[in-house]
Each structure stands twice: as C-alpha cells, then as structure tokens.
Design a protein around this nucleic acid. Structure first.
Length: 555
DNA sequence: AAGCATATCAACCGCTGTTTA
DNA sequence: GTAAACAGCGGTTGATATGCT
C-alpha cells in the first residue's frame, strides 16, 4: 500500500547508492553488485515485465544479469508473481472466495501456494495476508475459525473417510495438516491417561481439556489451528470498552493474562491463551491475590524442558467456546466475556489440597484445566446458582449424585466418535456461572444466545440420537474438521473400555510412521516418558480430579 | 485534532526441495 | 556422490492507511 508511493522515485539504477540509501532505500548484494531492496518502482516493473515477456518466467537470477535491474532473483520472482503477472485479480476477496479459502484452509492448512492454485488470479501472499488478518480478527472476537458449513462438511467427510477405512486423498491432506500445521502434542499424555483408565474412568472426558490446552508444545497466539480462536487480550480497545468487569490491568506487560497462578511463566500464559482460556481466566488485579490455582509452576522450574523425542504434531481441537454465532460467519459480535475463574473458584470448593500433587513445571495448564474441569463438573451441579444468580444461569444439577458423571461416561461410550472428546462439553459449557452479566447490547444478545445454550450444559446428559445430532453438532463447534477425522482420540489412549485399544497399525495409518514410532516409544515406557515429558503428575492430577468430583458430590 | 491501536499490504528472510554441474 | 545454484514456500516485518477514543 504505502510503498507504492515510492514509485515517485523512478530510479532503477541510482547512480549514487549511498544517496539512495539515505532516501530510505536499501541495497544489498555481493561485492560486485549492490542489489536494491524495498519497494519497486514502475520503471523496475517495466524492466521486469519486458524481460519476462521476452524470456518467459523462471531463471530469475538472470534478470539482473541481462537487464541490469538491481534486484535479486527472488525479489523479481516475487514481484512478478504477486504484482506483475497477467490475470491477477486485485481487490478484496469476494464472499465466495472467502468461503472457498476457508474450505481450502480446512483441507490444506497453511499451504498458501496450493490454495492460490485453486483461486485464479489470487496470489499466495494475498491469501496468506487475508487469512492472517482474518485470524486476528476472529481471534479477537473469539469466533470460530471456519464457517459452520465448512466445519460440518469436513466432519462429514472425515466420518465418511473413516468409515471407508484407510486414507484416501482427502485424509492425506488432513494428515498433512495434522503433521505440519498443528499443535504439537506431548505424546506422553496418552500414556498417562491410558494407563489411568482403570482408575480414571473420566479421563476421556477431560481429554478435550488435556489435549487442547496442555500437551501442546510451542503454543502461541499465532497458532492458527485453534478451531475457535480464544479471545485476545483486553488490550483490544473494544474489549477495553466492554462493560465486563474485567478489571483488566493496563499493564501491557501483563496484559492481565494470568489465569491461574501467580507464579506463572510465559508458557502457562501461552497455554492458557491457546487454550482459549485467556479471557475466560483473566482474573484481573483484584483477583491476583486470590487463591493460586497453581500446582506446578511455583517450583520455578523451567518449562522449557525438551522432550527427548520429537513431539508428535497433531491437529488439536481447541477448547470450544459455545458456538454463539453459527451462521454468522464473519459478522458476529464478540462473545460475552467471562468472569474471572479465580473468583469463581474462590467462591467454591477450596482446592489447595491438590497443589502438591503436580510438580511438573510443564503441565500447569493441563492440570489447571483438569482441575477446573473437575471443579466445574461439580460446581455446575452443586453451586451453579451461587455465582450465577445474576445471569440467566440454568442450574443443571438436581440429579442424582453420580448421574452427570455416569451419563457422561455412558455418553462417551455410546458416542465413541471423534467429536465427543473435544466437543460441546467445553469448560465454558459446563460453567454458566462464569458468564458475565454486564454487557453491551450486542454482547447481551450474544449472552442470551450463550445462556440460551446453557441447557446444553447437560449435553452429557443427553442421549445421543440421530435426531439431536445436528442440534448438538451446532454446539460442537467443529471448526477444524480435520481434527475430527477419526476416533483416533480414543484409539490414541483417550478412550476407555472397549474403545481404548491402541494399535500401532491404526496409529500409523492415521498419523503416519513418525507418530507411530513415537507412540511405540511412549507406550513402551510410560513412567519414563511421563518423567521425560514432565507429565508424571498428570495421572495423579487426574485422579485428584476424579476424587475432587466425588468430594464435591459428597460435600 | 492528536494520539493510539489495528488493518492492510508489500516485501524480505530463512528454510527446504529440486536441479544441475 | 556432492556441492552449488535455483525455485518456491511460509513466516515475519515494516510502512502506511484507517478507525477509534
């Protein structure tokens, strides 16, 4: 945009490089030729176009030699491809193109060049810029990344592919994404959960939390594969002006992003952020002194301990916000913000007894989430009316003591499909009390939608039938259809009972040889890998969570 | 109107895979 | 078989435009 203005300076071969550099242009090159960098001038464009017309594309390094154009071959290629070649379509993407891009991205991931090949006249750079911008926007709004139809389509394809068995081309693409464009999962968690299935009947339920938030390695806000982008930090003006009692610190350093623990590090922030818990958990200054829901990071150990084998990359479903805006692709108002979890926890069962059980510095987010899930499972039954009295909170729980969990478990078994582990039973879904009550008009509308979903907090209590499939799907928020392409979450160890069988063959088929090798490694020595990965305490955390549920039930 | 934050776009950088000598 | 050159890709950066307070 702005650089086009530099076309005023139409010197292709500035006689005095140093003078040109003083004008903001830069040059680089070998000792013999100083190559120009920065915006292209129209004269340079003419030279390049002329050259390509005569000699065709390719051999870009020859451009400089034959024309004297002081541009490196890469720069020439880029300029030609992105701006000069004929049949380039300029201007904003049409709605159809946008939708197509979403579809393509769902299938391909960040394969911009491949995507561009499907969009005549569009360049990979254009698509990339568009997508990244869109990511930011939707992340800020906490909206799903993909339009629901794309998600559903992908989901259906996945189901189809799975029922057909093996990998067809479509699955190959998914696999490609899985391997290259996804969060990395610390594989050891599979062991931790699997090995505890006997004593941790609810492990699968938490797998959405576990997988989404905490076995993730190298997460950051730029991760684009979180199916629902977590709301961005309150740094955003629009969030700032929100009437939500965010108490957000204006300290940019902190950004008010410390969800659980006072002794947190960047990783926990990242985890929480990538987890979709950032806004959810943002406690604000007033709550920083509240109970520290930390079990792991307080030992000050570095969280950067590296695994001894390469992490497995998997496409991960994120923490799923309730789908507020299905069908409002790209135009939805931001979702309601949420009350501090610290506050929420504080108002409920103390959990300090859990802190000592998890010493791993790496799994903070995981355990936080696990514990949180446990808390909310219990709280949603026992305490929902406490905190949520000023919201349209429906109290889900006047059922029998174990009904929720039992049904949950039954649900898991009955609906042993790829969606359930990461679907509608999100943290938020189970915790209506977290919903703020003071919102702008738009937000209130969203909130109504949000709270309107609250009966679906009992999703786990619903019997899965074809009739309610569609309805439930709308809450599943399947925004990365590729995530869902198999029941491998079960097979990888998140299942239990009859579904827990793990076969290397299946793993290999679904995730490739690398993963299978890693998986073998993992399963060959659970305790070792757990220690190596710093997840040794996951099991105990999960057990604690289980126990916590019962404690809460009893209490 | 000023200041700030965000959006947009073009271009660069580093890496990887392929081709060629 | 190996190294260099080349081509391409994806991530990132930086400048400007735009919008909001």
């Amino acid at each position: 945009m702005g650089r086009v203005n530099n076309e005023i300076e139409d010197e292709v071969l500035p006689s005095d490089v140093s003078a040109a550099q003083s004008n903001g242009e830069s040059y680089e090159g070998s000792t013999s030729v100083v190559l120009k960098k920065g915006p292209w001038t129209s004269t340079e464009d003419d030279i390049l176009v002329d050259y390509v017309n005569k000699n065709g594309e390719g051999n870009w390094n020859a451009v400089q030699k034959h024309t004297g154009l002081l541009r490196c071959g890469k720069s020439c290629r880029l300029r030609w491809a992105n701006h000069l070649r004929p049949n380039l379509k300029k201007g904003a993407f049409t709605a159809e193109e946008e939708r197509f891009i979403a579809e393509l991205h769902a299938k391909m991931g960040n394969k911009w060049a491949r995507m561009a090949a499907h969009l005549p006249g569009r360049t990979d750079n254009e698509i990339k810029n568009y997508w990244n911008t869109r990511i930011k926007r939707r992340q800020r709004a906490g909206l799903p990344l993909y339009p629901p139809e794309v998600s559903l389509q992908g989901f259906q394809e996945s189901q189809r592919n799975q029922s057909n068995g093996g990998l067809n081309g479509g699955n190959r693409m998914h696999l490609d994404m899985l391997q290259k464009n996804s969060y990395e999962i610390h594989g050891a968690i599979f062991d931790s959960l699997k090995d505890n299935q006997g004593i941790l009947p609810y492990a699968p339920k938490f797998s959405d939390v576990s997988v989404c938030g905490n076995m993730l390695k190298g997460l950051d806000s730029s991760s684009q594969y979180c199916s629902v982008m977590p709301p961005a930090s309150p740094k955003n003006k629009r969030l700032r002006e929100s009437t939500i009692p965010f108490n957000g610190s204006k300290d940019k350093k902190n950004n008010g992003l410390y969800p659980f623990c006072q002794n947190r590090d960047n990783n926990s922030d990242k985890i929480a952020h990538s987890f979709g818990m950032q806004a959810l958990l943002d406690p604000g200054p007033s709550s920083h002194n509240s109970m520290c829901f930390s079990h792991s990071l307080s030992n000050g150990n570095s969280s950067t301990s590296k695994p001894t084998f390469e992490a497995v990359k998997l496409e991960l479903p994120s923490l799923q916000y309730p789908e507020l805006h299905l069908g409002s692709w790209g135009t939805s108002p931001p979702p309601p913000m949420l009350e501090s979890v610290d506050d929420f926890f504080q108002s409920h069962t103390p959990i300090s007894t859990l802190e000592s059980d998890c010493s791993s510095p790496q799994n903070s987010g995981l355990l936080d989430a696990l514990l949180y899930q446990a808390k909310t499972l219990s709280s949603s039954r026992n305490h929902c009316s406490d905190k949520g009295s000023n919201s349209s909170t429906a109290t889900p729980g006047d059922r029998g003591d174990n009904s929720a969990l039992n049904v949950y478990e039954t649900e898991w078994e009955d609906y042993a499909d790829p969606v359930s582990p990461f679907g509608a039973t999100s943290i938020l879904n189970e915790c209506p009390a977290l919903i703020g009550s003071e919102n702008s008009l738009d937000e209130q509308l969203s909130l109504q939608t949000f709270t309107g979903n609250i009966p679906k907090l009992e999703f786990v209590d619903q019997v899965w039938t074809p009739d309610n499939e569609n309805q439930t799907l709308s809450f599943l928020n399947i925004t990365r259809p590729d995530l869902l392409f198999a029941s491998d979450w079960h097979e990888l160890g998140f299942g239990h009972g009859k579904n827990q069988a793990i076969t290397t063959d299946t793993t290999t088929t679904l995730l490739g040889d690398d993963f299978a090798a890693d998986h073998k490694h993992m399963t060959s020595g659970t305790s070792q890998s757990s220690q190596v990965w710093g997840f040794g305490s996951c099991a105990s955390a999960a057990n604690n969570m289980h126990a916590l549920c019962h404690l809460s039930d009893l209490g």
